[in-house]
């Protein structure tokens, strides 16, 4: 029975796409001194992967913090011309597929600045007609060979919080409509 459920879950995840009308979002929060908080966001996620893996790819140049010069500094820090994409990959089999709300800590891999490190993402999932996933995790910039930026005495702390929210649905179901 359990084996059959897992097979069904894998089948449902096999051909996923972003649900129309619910654009994906990714964001980050970085921290500076004396209460300074830098928030960035992008909506340019791409869904990919293969039979075993689901991946979310972000062109880092699409991240915006609301201040253009700060964005330029960020892209220099990320060496975006050399490493244009950040990718979060997770094994499809590790994604819970149960009706209603659930949450799980899921092992994943993040590739950033050309370096891949394991991360654990905290996911809140809601399975209805579509699968809503809100994921959060933290990283240390230095783990990815990134020197935290400093500007006129204001030094960004290495710990950064990331979040992503996506709504996925079976591509076949969409075609059937």
């Amino acid at each position: 029975m359990l084996f059959a459920r897992s097979l069904l879950a894998l089948a449902a995840l096999a051909a996923l796409q972003f649900a129309p009308g619910a654009p994906p979002k990714v964001g980050f929060i970085a921290h500076g001194p004396v209460g300074m908080k830098i928030e960035g966001a992008s909506g340019q996620l791409a869904l990919g992967g293969d039979a075993d893996t689901l991946s979310l790819s972000l062109p880092v140049a699409t991240l915006q913090t609301g201040i253009e010069l700060r964005d330029k500094h960020m892209l220099v820090m990320l060496q975006s011309e050399t490493y244009p994409t950040a990718t979060l990959s997770v094994k499809r089999a590790l994604i819970p597929h149960v009706p209603g709300d659930s949450s799980a800590d899921i092992p994943a891999a993040l590739t950033l600045h050309g370096q891949t490190r394991p991360v654990v993402i905290h996911c809140h999932l809601r399975q209805a007609e579509a699968l809503d996933i809100t994921a959060t995790f933290a990283l240390e910039l230095t783990d990815y060979g990134i020197e935290p930026p400093s500007y006129l005495g204001v030094k960004v702390k290495p710990s950064v919080e990331l979040s992503a929210s996506v709504r996925l649905q079976d591509a076949a179901a969409d075609i059937a409509k």
């Binding site: 004396v34 209460g35 908080k37 928030e39 609301g66 500007y151 005495g153 204001v154």
Partner: peptide
């Protein structure tokens, strides 16, 4: 409007006004 909810990163006075930090000057 730029996300600066507090003043201390730009002003020496943490509640705002008066002398500027180098970051505030920029």
């Amino acid at each position: 409007r730029h996300g600066y909810t507090s003043c201390a990163v730009c002003h020496v006075d943490p509640s705002g006004a008066g002398n500027l930090t180098p970051y505030g000057r920029a």
